[in-house]
Amino acid sequence: MEKDLEKMSKTMPYTVPEGFFDEMEERLMQEVAPKKTKSKARNVVLWTSLAVAASLALLLVLRQGWHKTDDASFEQVEMTFNQLSDGDQQLMLELFEEMDELDNY
């Protein structure tokens, strides 16, 4: 009985598309590798959001006592503002203008 099976070829009738295993290896590597990239990207977004939030908070606090603000604190605001991206700077300016308009009512 054993002999009968041993005589038979272990070749299977199954085939795979050409280049399948190479392609799968790369696909699986991508499947496990992008996690890092994604989390890095998420971290950048998180830190940007935090920077914007912190800057906003700082501006709001300073704005309350705008007229009392001395040159040193204004410089700090300016430095923080300069570190923001163009888009965030634009957003800050728009918010600031809106708040000013509200104050004038």
Binding site: M12, Y14, P17, F21, M24, E25, L28, V32
Partner: peptide, 23 residues
């Protein structure tokens, strides 16, 4: 993980193929 794939990708595929049949 790449080493793991190079060593076991084909044996695992053929093992699965014998059970589930379709590619």
């Amino acid at each position: 993980f790449r080493q793991l794939l190079q060593r076991y990708q084909q044996p695992v595929y053929w093992y699965a193929r014998r059970m589930v049949v379709s590619h």
